[in-house]
Design a protein around this nucleic acid. Structure first.
Lengths: 224, 224
DNA sequence: TTTAGAATTTAGCTAAGACTAAATTATTAA
DNA sequence: TTAATAATTTAGTCTTAGCTAAATTCTAAA
């Protein structure tokens, strides 16, 4: 059994590797912890064969490390989905609760809620849920910011941990599966005018950059 | 925020106080921990004003300590009920899962599942669930062992943590609310013959001692 | 009332996981 | 190529919560 601290490190490293690479400082920043603490932990993780660590060069997950990270991420996203669907949590509240629970549920709990939810592939924010055997499709989407004027897109994914942002997105209807058309983009990173559910809505480019979208084609785009 | 260790100590002390009194050794035995560790912790708990501690005399919970203990117990029993009712856990599995989760759910989670369950007063084993404001009726029941021949009783409560026993009890139908008549009691702590749901069943006295019952009277005995 | 045995506490150790301050190594701009 | 700066590691501390072994205190029987 891995400690909660270890699980949190693995999760963080996994997410940093996705973006670029996991260095001591980046991990420290992401976890809100002193860099020296990270160095310590990286040595322990290396001893446990969860990461490959070379001094001054950062870390990469080993296969067991990656497996463990994905299991926690699976827990997290399944729990988010469960809280939303079964207990009526609003989508801006699920992240914090899942952040705790993810470390403390059994295999049986995981299976039971997956079953209840009909083995969902995505959580309420559009994040893909790793499968039980550790597979996670790594699909990259464009952002709303890069979408050309006149193009109709479907929201795929939004950030999961900024609850204030999530409340705003819910308010204006920018949730996964929402159909959106870009009507206007002011120059110099100016505001962007959208049509969402027949309403015109103007958002800033910072928000637009955080909303991931995919082209809309009539035959329902499936990810398989 | 109290640590998980502290919460576990408080819960244990609460339960020992119910039976008799909480001494260092008893706590150590109940928690599977060395007595010296308990002494240490008792001092910390005293500093936190959670217990009244006098060296060599054991501890008693203070009001804040009692409140905290009851909150954990409320979590535990609500979670047990939820796992059973909402996720289809069998009653012999709920205890172990709840033992972990009880420390890691938020106020909101507690409220949501209580709401879902319709604010239940008892868990699947018949243990009463403390109210949110820390009230817990302390009702003592007779055991099946002490029930006289020919008397009809209703099962009220069974032990919650011995899953083997729970599977056995489920098999023979000895669950809370089951109506039972004592048909025969062999002398010298011999087996006891019961009628449960029209079937005759013979159980040992050790089991009979662990099943709490109340007299059956036609007008549904309520605990208020 | 003394004393053996049980219960409890003290003392000192360990591991996990955090911290700060100081030292070292990498990197980058001049 | 060197010097300044940034990143990382080392060294040493702290807290929590456990442990063992030894010392102390209580209790109950002789």
């Amino acid at each position: 059994m891995l400690s909660q601290a270890i699980e949190d490190y693995l999760k963080t490293i996994y997410k940093l590797e996705e973006k670029s690479s996991a260095t001591t400082n980046e991990i420290a920043r992401a976890m809100g912890v002193a860099a020296a603490s990270v160095t310590n932990m990286l040595k322990r993780l290396a001893e446990l064969n969860l990461v490959e660590y070379t001094s001054h060069k950062g870390v990469t997950l080993t296969e067991p490390g990656r497996k463990a990270a994905l299991e926690i991420i699976r827990h997290h996203r399944l729990i988010e989905m469960y809280l939303h669907e079964a207990l009526g949590y609003s989508w801006d509240k699920v992240h914090d609760e899942a952040e705790h629970l993810e470390h403390h549920i059994s295999e049986e709990f995981e299976d039971k809620i997956a079953e209840f939810l009909g083995h969902p592939t995505h959580d309420p924010h559009g994040d893909p849920i790793p499968t039980k055997d550790g597979k996670l499709p790594d699909i990259k989407h464009e952002t709303l910011l890069k979408t050309d004027i006149g193009v109709e897109v479907v929201v795929q994914r939004v950030p999961d941990s900024d609850s204030e942002l999530l409340r705003y997105l819910a308010e204006i209807g920018l949730k996964p599966k929402a159909k959106v058309e870009v009507l206007l983009k002011a120059p110099f990173n100016g505001p962007i005018t959208l049509k969402i559910a027949e309403k015109e809505i103007i958002i800033g480019c910072e928000v637009a950059e955080k909303v991931q979208v995919a082209a809309f084609n009539n035959k329902k785009n499936k990810s398989k």
